[in-house]
Design a protein around this nucleic acid. Structure first.
Length: 408
DNA sequence: AGTCCACAGGAAGGGCAGGCGA
DNA sequence: TCGCCTGCCCTTCCTGTGGACT
C-alpha cells in the first residue's frame, strides 16, 4: 500500500469519526471520578458522615473518621460529595473550612513521608519543592501553612492502608497529634481503606485516634447496581441505545465481583465503546462479554508496560520457563534467577543479585502479574513457587511484547 | 534429635540523580 | 557552583525458616 493510500484511509477514519453519530450523550457520566447529583443507595453513609463533619461549621474539630469497605462501594464518592457540600455551605456563610484530598496510591504522591507532606502543603497553596529540603523544614512549612488557615482543615487520605504499608504509621501519628501544636486551626482526618483489618497493624495510639468514628460501606447488590447503572445510562446514552438486558448483565457480573460499582460502570462504558467502534448503534449482551475480556487484558498490559527493565527481564524469564509447559507447572526462585542471568548475558547486561530478584518476584506477585507462593521443600530448602496467574494467550501476547521491548 | 538445604527477608549502607538554597 | 537533602535501586551481610533426610 503506498503512503498516499494510507494517508487517505487515515483521513477517512477521522472524517467518519466526525460525521458518525455518537451513541454517547455524555460519556463523562460513566467515569468513576464523576460526582452525580444524586448518590443512590448510600443515604445512611451520607447522613452519618455529614453529621460528623457538620461541627466544622461551628469552628469545632470534627472527629477523625475511618471509612472502610470493598472497592467500588462509593466510599470516595460519598466522602468527596459530603466535603464539597460542606465547603459550599461554609463558603456561603464565609466560614474558614478547608478540604484536601490525597490518593495515597497515586505514584509520586505518598511514596514517602516527604512527598506526602509536600503534596498536602502544595494543595493548600504552600509551594514545597519536589525534593531537596530536609524533612523537618517541610514539616514546619506545612504546619505554618495549616496554622495560617485559621479554621478547620479536613484531610482525606484515600487508600490509607497503602500509605501505611509504604511509609509506616509515623506520619499518621504526627497528623493525629497535630492539633496539640496548633492554636488557630483544627485538623480532622478521614482515612479511607478497602482493607478492614489494616488498623490491626497500627500503633495503638494512632488506631484509637484515627478511628474516633467508623463508617462501614457494604457492597452493592445486583439490584442496587442495576439502579445505579440505569440512572447513569439515562444521562450517558441517547434513548434506546442500551438494552435492559445489558444493564442487568453488567450489574450481575459486578455484583459477583464484590458488588463493585466501578467495575459495573467500566463494563457498561467499554461495551458501548466496542459497539460504537463496530458501527453498531445498539449495545448488546455480547458487547459486555467482549468488554470484560478487554478490561482484563488492558489492565494487565498497562501494568507490564510500566515495569522497570530488570522487572521485565524477570517476568520474561518466568514466561520463558512456564509458557512451554502445561498449565499449573511451577518453577522456583533459583530457576527464575538462572534464566534471568542467561537472558542478561544474551543482551550483554550486568545481572543484579538474587536477593533483588527475590524482591522483584514478590513485587510481580503483588501486582497480580504472576503467582508466587513461599514453599518449604524440606531438605531441598525454602523457596517461592512461581506460576501463571492468567490465561496463556494473554501471557503469549506479553511474551512477544517483552521480546521486542528487550531486544531478545 | 540434629543436620541440611535454598532460599526469604530484614538491616545497613553505597552510589547516583534530581532539586533546592546560599 | 557547591553542599546538602531525599528518593530510588541496588548490594552485602546476616539470621530465620521448616520439612526432608540421616
Amino acid at each position: 500500500m503506498t503512503q498516499n493510500i494510507v494517508q487517505q484511509k487515515i483521513s477517512m477514519v477521522f472524517k467518519s469519526a466526525i460525521d458518525k453519530k455518537s451513541i454517547f450523550k455524555n460519556k463523562r457520566v460513566l467515569d468513576i471520578s464523576y460526582i452525580p447529583d444524586n448518590i443512590l443507595h448510600r443515604d445512611s453513609e451520607l447522613y452519618e458522615i455529614s453529621k460528623i463533619l457538620s461541627v466544622s461549621l461551628k469552628n469545632e474539630r470534627p472527629s477523625n473518621v475511618f471509612v472502610y469497605g470493598p472497592t467500588g462501594t462509593g466510599k470516595t464518592l460519598v466522602v468527596d460529595y459530603v466535603c464539597n457540600e460542606l465547603l459550599s455551605v461554609a463558603r456561603e456563610n464565609k466560614l474558614s473550612v478547608h478540604y484536601v484530598y490525597v490518593n495515597a496510591k497515586l505514584k509520586r504522591i505518598a511514596d514517602t513521608e516527604y512527598r506526602l507532606v509536600s503534596h498536602i502543603a502544595n494543595e493548600l497553596g504552600e509551594h514545597i519543592p519536589f525534593t531537596g529540603l530536609p524533612t523537618d523544614v517541610v514539616y514546619s512549612r506545612f504546619l505554618n501553612k495549616v496554622e495560617s488557615l485559621n479554621g478547620v482543615l479536613i484531610i482525606v487520605i484515600d487508600e490509607i492502608d497503602y500509605l501505611v504499608n509504604k511509609i509506616g504509621d509515623r506520619f499518621l501519628y504526627t497528623l493525629t497529634r497535630i492539633n496539640q501544636d496548633l492554636y488557630n486551626t483544627k485538623v480532622s482526618i478521614i482515612g479511607i481503606s478497602n482493607n478492614l483489618n489494616f488498623t490491626e497493624y497500627l500503633d495503638a495510639r494512632v488506631r484509637s485516634s484515627l478511628s474516633e468514628e467508623e463508617v462501614v460501606f457494604s457492597p452493592y447488590n445486583a439490584i442496587q447496581l442495576r439502579d445505579i447503572l440505569e440512572d447513569r445510562s439515562k444521562k450517558a446514552f441517547y434513548e434506546g441505545v442500551v438494552e435492559n438486558s445489558v444493564i442487568n448483565k453488567c450489574a450481575a457480573i459486578a455484583a459477583q465481583e464484590n458488588g463493585d460499582a466501578r467495575k459495573a460502570l467500566d463494563l457498561l462504558r467499554v461495551s458501548a465503546e466496542i459497539a460504537e467502534r463496530n458501527n453498531e448503534y445498539k449495545v448488546k449482551e455480547y458487547h459486555v462479554d467482549l468488554a470484560q475480556k478487554k478490561i482484563d487484558y488492558d489492565r494487565f498490559i498497562e501494568v507490564v508496560k510500566t515495569l522497570a527493565q530488570h522487572q521485565k527481564l524477570t517476568l520474561f524469564a518466568v514466561l520463558d520457563l512456564l509458557l512451554s509447559k502445561d498449565v499449573g507447572f511451577k518453577v522456583h526462585t533459583g530457576d527464575v534467577y538462572d534464566k534471568y542471568v542467561s537472558l542478561c548475558n544474551r543482551i550483554k547486561k550486568t545481572p543484579i543479585t538474587q536477593r533483588r530478584i527475590s524482591d522483584i518476584i514478590n513485587e510481580l506477585d503483588i501486582l497480580g502479574i504472576i503467582n508466587a507462593k513461599i514453599k518449604n521443600l524440606g531438605r531441598y530448602g525454602r523457596t517461592r513457587e512461581v506460576s501463571l496467574a492468567n490465561s496463556k494467550d494473554v501471557y503469549e501476547k506479553i511474551y512477544n511484547l517483552l521480546k521486542n521491548d528487550l531486544y531478545l
